[in-house]
Write a protein that binds this DNA or RNA. Structure first.
Lengths: 339, 339
DNA sequence: CTGAAAGCGCTAACAT
DNA sequence: ATGTTAGCGCTTTCAG
């Protein structure tokens, strides 16, 4: 155990603990001579201050929390990279909570953040989250927080998101341009802001092209484990053979579409054109290469973290219209939509 | 700010803070009646104890640190899932430090763990790490830690790893069986335990097959950014057209091999057979599907975390031979090695 | 069964 | 320029 406290350090130096404390933080009221001595001794004994004592005293933790559904997902892991990059700059620590798309777990994580454990929170909500009551608690406790990617519409709070509606629209437009007559949008959860906005854009493009009158369902919810998604897709494509285009609202759906097509001998792009919202690095080397709408994941994380730190530093958490930052995604055409 | 402390809670209830504190932790020396009252009031006021005060007092943090090179990597993100799964069970928090393959950053992260900030550390070292002096400090301070995946050979410490040597051997054997005459092993850093063990196995298989006498270099170091790796590979395959098989020691190398082949019109598997150490989900849908040696990433994380918690709980960190757990990887043949 | 009080290690007034 | 001291909020003897 780190028995080495500021007290022993002080005794060793023949100084008071106050002097040592001040010297360690380079206070102006300490002579540069003693500062040197203190620093040298601290170095020599490998003194590391107890962060909890300091946090307790200063009522701040130098720690932020990131609450997100999943880390084994390209988008989120890149976002974490962005967050870490700025946290490191600020000498902050990053606590990670994974909700695994469970509302209960997410609520729990948020609750942990209510105790002063963290100075701020970055959150991307789970697909099971339909109420913001837990997040309101953060607000009530005056704990700074920023949504990134998956947010609550109509919830006044700082957020960093992408242009989901426009991208949904563009995706549909591309499929239509490529000749699709019955494109469908694969959602994971319509309660998820990103999904509903993407599908709304998708639907609008279909309407604009006059493709909504044939009464086929063009927004389909697809949830569960990878296996469950696989089966749902299998059924869908079996039942409705007229589907000739798919937009996958999230990365993991794209995977399953490819697997189903592989098994069912459905040719992409001849029989079915595919576009995925995804930051998959392997998109260009898939069979066939996958057309993606690529979100600026790292940038989203970075920007959200920066916003959070201005809130933490300014200590005033005023929420203005400008608190919503939209970083656009880019549509990259590849072979899954060619022809 | 969470002004609600145990003190206000006690006042509200007309009890002493000691009683309240004990009631909250369900101490046997409190009547069940008062316990109920306390719990109810705590619930009602939404009381959340200050973790730093508690940590300071109890000298334990209910937090573990995970130090690893990267989170945007399938292996590591799955390992984190495994770690989180057990941390959640134990009601522990997880602090994540990313070294980004930098020794300096890693050292820094380890240093942060020396202050009592965490009760234990899980570490997978960076490729730039060649000395264990920072890790020895953990040992000196008696802070429990466990290596996972990337460890130090000859360093006595608990570790959870995979059967790297055997897999390197199997990979080479498969390539040879498939007719390769000049297979090469692509390393990222021979100072990395996983790489050196995998390449050693690889070399052994070549020797056993009598393929080492043709003097070609069969272990090649390939480091840097994705772009740099791409260029190195391009040069390699241009210079040495006899190379007919490659084992990628890590996931991101496989990506670049595919991209180079795509550009250079090199046919996999006809011109070049490829095997990758990888947990890539997209391996089956790549063009061509990729033969992988898949590590039990989730299990490795989980097992390492479990080992760490037994150390934390037992408070004796005895290092025995059994402290090294080997979880075998599995070779999955796909089209990148067919023919 | 309940309460008083000491103190975890540090910081920040407030002396000196 | 250095030192004294009072807590931060909690746990934990030890008394009652």
């Amino acid at each position: 155990m780190s028995k080495l406290t500021i007290k022993t350090l002080a005794k060793e130096l023949g100084l008071s603990i106050a002097t040592v404390s001040k010297a360690l933080k380079d206070s102006h009221e300490i002579s540069s001579e003693t500062k040197k001595k203190v620093l040298a001794m601290a170095e020599q004994l490998n003194y590391v201050p107890n962060p909890y004592a300091s946090s307790l005293r200063k009522q701040k933790s130098k720690t932020i929390a990131v609450i997100l559904p999943e880390v084994a997902d390209n988008f989120f892991s890149l976002a974490i990279n962005g967050i870490q990059a700025v946290a490191t700059t600020k000498n902050y620590h990053v606590l990670i909570y994974l909700s695994h798309e469970s509302f209960e777990i997410e609520k729990n994580a948020v609750n942990h953040c209510l105790s002063g454990r963290v100075d701020g929170v970055l959150i991307s909500v789970s697909s099971a989250t339909t109420t913001a009551s837990h997040i309101e608690k953060l607000q009530n406790e005056n704990i700074p927080f920023v949504f990134f990617d998956r947010e609550f519409e109509n919830f006044k709070a700082p957020k960093v998101i992408t242009n989901d509606y426009a991208c949904g629209y563009e995706a549909a437009k591309l499929l239509i341009k490529k000749g699709c007559k019955q494109p469908v949008f694969l959602s994971t959860s319509e309660s998820l802001s990103i999904c509903s906005k993407r599908s709304a854009g998708f639907a609008a493009a279909l309407a604009d092209a006059g493709l909504t009158n044939n009464k086929h369902e063009f927004v389909i919810d697809c949830t569960g484990t990878q296996e469950m998604i696989f089966e749902q897709l299998q059924k869908l494509l079996k039942k409705n053979k007229k589907i000739d285009g798919i937009v996958a609202s999230v990365e993991k759906l794209a995977m399953q579409i490819y697997l189903v097509c592989l098994e069912k001998n459905i040719n992409i792009p001849d029989d079915l054109k595919v576009i995925a919202f995804s930051t998959l690095e392997t998109a260009p080397i898939l069979n066939p290469s996958l057309t993606t709408i690529t979100q600026p994941a790292f940038e989203i994380g970075k920007t959200a973290a920066e916003a959070l730190f201005t809130m933490i530093e300014k200590k005033k958490h005023t929420i203005t219209a400008e608190s919503v930052t939209v970083l656009p995604s880019t549509l990259i055409e590849r072979n899954s939509t060619s022809g």
